[in-house]
Amino acid sequence: MMMQEQIREEAGGKVLFDAALAGVDGDWFDPAFWRDRGALQVQGGGRGGVAMIDTPTGACVLRHYHRGGLVARFSRDRYLWTGEAHTRSFAEFRLLAHCAGLKLPAPEPVAARFCRHGVFYTADLITRRIDDARTLAQCLADGRLDADLARETGALVARFHREGIWHADLNAHNVLVTSEALYLIDFDRGRLRAPAEAWRLANLARLRRSLVKLGAIERIADFQAAIWGPLVYGYERTLGA
């Protein structure tokens, strides 16, 4: 069943949320709102601007969109306005809702917001929290990345690719591993694409570069045969299923 959207007008912007929820407004995107209620669990710094919050709908993750790279020196969290549907938060919310409709393992969207600032805007997103999870990068660092986990990772990516879902930043930090399932997270700038081998292979190559950058070749003897081969096998088997 596809999620039903609802949009609330706020001063200077709009809030998009799951119509099944009640009471969602601009306050939900302010960490201080949750802190005052004893519902702010963790607030991290860095580029992600992530806070763990306990909401009336359950445990969630609040993320303020921040720029990375050189452009962050000039504009830390403001993006050029090109229309409501193109805001980072609304686009990611809707892509995640699409994933949920397909029963793909990704965070479930709860609410998204943008605030206009002249020709720029800022954005925020709230998703349901995936508990008791480790990133694939952490698994590698802890010596837990083996052929079985590699195959599962390949199968995970293939499930999204099979539906034409392109992840803009497919790396080992954006694969979550729990005792029951694997998930892809952080779909900022992701989008639906027509089936094509070129973008699928480029997406996989990005994941491989991430693992190599994290020292997989040095940590794992014969990385190509022990890890990457099984990962590609799991990917191809699932993609063709």
Rank of each mutant, 00 (worst) to 15 (best):
L95R: 05
G13S: 09
V119Q: 00
D30N: 14
I53T: 10
A20V: 03
G190E: 08
C139Y: 02
G13K: 04
I227V: 11
P195D: 04
A147I: 05
E163R: 11
V42C: 11
A22N: 05
R151N: 02
T238C: 09
Q224Y: 02
R67A: 03
L182Y: 04
D146Q: 02
D188I: 09
D148H: 15
A100P: 02
T87Q: 12
A51R: 01
G190L: 07
A181E: 12
P56V: 08
I185L: 09
R73V: 08
V157H: 00
A100G: 15
I130D: 07
R129Y: 12
A168Y: 02
W166H: 07
L201S: 04
M52N: 03
V15W: 06
Y235Q: 05
T238V: 03
R8K: 14
E197N: 00
R151G: 08
V71F: 13
L176S: 05
D148K: 15
D30W: 01
F93P: 00
G101D: 15
L96S: 13
R134N: 07
T135E: 09
A72P: 10
A59F: 03
E197S: 02
C60Y: 06
P107H: 06
F160S: 03
R113M: 11
F187V: 10
G46F: 11
L16V: 13
L136Q: 10
L125H: 10
Q43W: 12
F114S: 02
A32Y: 05
V61T: 09
E218Q: 09
A137W: 09
G83W: 12
R73A: 15
A221S: 10
G101H: 13
I53N: 11
P230G: 06
D54V: 04
E10P: 04
I53D: 07
C115L: 13
G101K: 01
A181T: 12
H161V: 13
A39D: 09
A196D: 13
S75C: 01
K14C: 14
V212R: 14
M52A: 11
R144G: 14
R219F: 02
C60R: 04
K213G: 14
W228N: 03
G154T: 01
G48H: 14
P195F: 01
G143S: 00
F160M: 02
E92W: 06
T238P: 01
L176K: 06
E9Q: 15
V232R: 08
A85H: 11
H64E: 01
A85N: 12
W28K: 04
